[in-house]
Amino acid sequence: MLDELRELYQEVILDHGRSPRNFRRLADPAHHAHGQNPMCGDTLDVYLKLGADGTIEDVAFEGKGCAISMASASLMTETLKGRQITEAERMFDAFHRLCTEESFDAATAGVDEDALERLQVLAGVRAFPVRVKCATLAWHTMKAALEGGATVTTE
């Protein structure tokens, strides 16, 4: 029992859950979306600042939720800063597969393998299907922000 739990609640996750990085509102975000997980009441806001060439110049978030959702949002902001929008969208797909597919292979995902490797700490949610939504909430919200805002829910 403890092994699987320790696999889910790795030190990196507990650390990011306790002290999330880029946890702030961007002053003048070009892109923003609000995400919520109605089942558990988790909410978060993702802010993005984009450069003229499609680079994500800054990305930040605010919200309340479980260790998994906070850590995932925190790691996402670290991962995406400085990347191209198109790559962020590919990483969204890759991250989703990482959280759900047992046989997922980072090498075949067509995105920066090292970045994906850092997100690998969240793969523990595979053993906890009801928690997948917690891990993916930030990414869905980020995608909604890129696509023009509004509110997303994980229902």
Partner: peptide
């Protein structure tokens, strides 16, 4: 303190214990 109810629920489930975690359909109360 320092642990979200959802994380408590997941860990208790691994011990065979079923509890509810969330707003209990009473958001105004929360």
């Amino acid at each position: 303190e320092g642990v979200h109810a959802h994380d408590i629920g997941t860990i208790l489930d691994r011990a065979g214990i079923a509890v509810r975690a969330g707003h209990h359909c009473a958001q105004p109360l929360m």
